[in-house]
Nucleic acid binder design. Structure first.
Lengths: 198, 198
DNA sequence: TGTACATCAGTGAACGCGCGTTCACTGATGTAC
DNA sequence: TGTACATCAGTGAACGCGCGTTCACTGATGTAC
């Protein structure tokens, strides 16, 4: 016998799942994902600790879901919007994209920045894989991954580095210093992308 | 009455304190500093949990000691050795310094990379302050901190970003790929330092 | 020299607490016929 | 339509465990005189 839940039931389950993901993101931004507990996250999502298991086997599985379902769309949106811009203004476009992403979801941005080099090896690996896709697209938008010139391969590292630094600094900067930050970051990004510095 | 311990007693206390610091560094590199417990660290340092309090009030105080006593010397040594090199080979010198630091103390390098954007705000702030000193020296070795041209200020961010990326990638790379890594990193560092790419 | 006392790193017992996990159960809502 | 059954998200009680912290104590080793 094949049973399927009604749309309403399915939506309710998705809602609780999203609440768990958002709670983990928020608490992780404060105290670090590695220090989070199943009970803490469940409490923040207003469910009983035992209900957690209806959605994830453990916190590691929740972490993977965060990468796949929240980080990936953010990074890919950023990469694609910058790629559509002319190369001469790509650094500016990238800064605008970072600013927009940070404003739209600061917790998600901090999660990316912190856990990329954080304590959970699986999380670190998954986050860097997302960023590698981003950088590869930018270093050689018309070449396949196996067809990169040495200089382009080299630029990937710098791009990732400055991009993440951009996230981190944008997160920590008060709104009043945003103009100054913009100047600094656009310059750094232009350097990383191999453009001439302004 | 003023009592002072003998040199032998003082050395013994220093030895235990160092054991606590190293244990925290090692365990932190594995699981993240934020997830470490006082009992866990004490166990790894072969002392009773209650003896921990003879050295630090809590884990936060131990974290501060890690920054002041281990991270600071490492970063400053790196900065000074690179500054003594001619500007044309500074990127190479910097890579050699990073490699040497990672080989000498991989746990310390990982601690710096991870906790710079980690969960403990105090730790984050302290680590970034150390790196800021480094970058300021490199961006404008002959100017005071208040006398930086816009371009040099801008380069600070890129320098820190690529430097830390250098640490992170060196840590994760197997020894066999070190030559390739060297090529990529020296190129990125040259970019960040404002030199012409090779 | 001997005696009395101070210092202090290290310790084991004990505490209350929150953790992850197992378990049997509930109740809403589906399908089968 | 009614009846029997299946599914499944959510739950509260209970478990054993490791945590941070307090406490009174030990023992080595200093100083005072």
């Amino acid at each position: 016998m094949v049973l399927r839940a009604t749309p309403e039931k399915r939506e309710e389950k998705v809602r609780v799942r999203q609440a768990l993901l958002r709670a983990a993101l928020r608490l992780g931004a404060e105290h670090g994902f590695a220090s989070l507990g199943l009970r803490e996250v469940s409490r923040a999502a207003s469910i009983a600790p035992t209900s957690f298991y209806r959605h994830f086997a453990d916190m590691g599985e929740l972490g993977s879901a965060l990468v796949m379902e929240l980080v990936r769309p953010m990074v890919r949106t950023l990469a694609e919007s910058a790629l559509q811009a002319d190369a001469s203004v790509r650094a500016e476009k990238l800064f605008e994209g970072i600013l927009a992403a940070v404003v739209a979801d600061a917790e998600l941005a901090r999660f990316l920045v912190a856990e990329r080099v954080g304590a959970f090896a699986n999380l670190r690996q998954a986050l860097n894989a997302e960023l590698e896709v981003f950088a590869t697209l930018h270093a050689a938008p018309k070449a396949g991954p196996l067809d990169l010139a040495a200089r382009e391969v080299m630029l990937i590292g710098a791009t990732v580095a400055v991009l993440v630094e951009g996230f981190a600094r944008t997160l920590d900067a008060p709104a009043g210093e945003r103009a100054q930050l913009r100047e600094r970051l656009v310059g750094s990004l232009a350097l990383a992308l191999g453009q001439r510095a302004p």
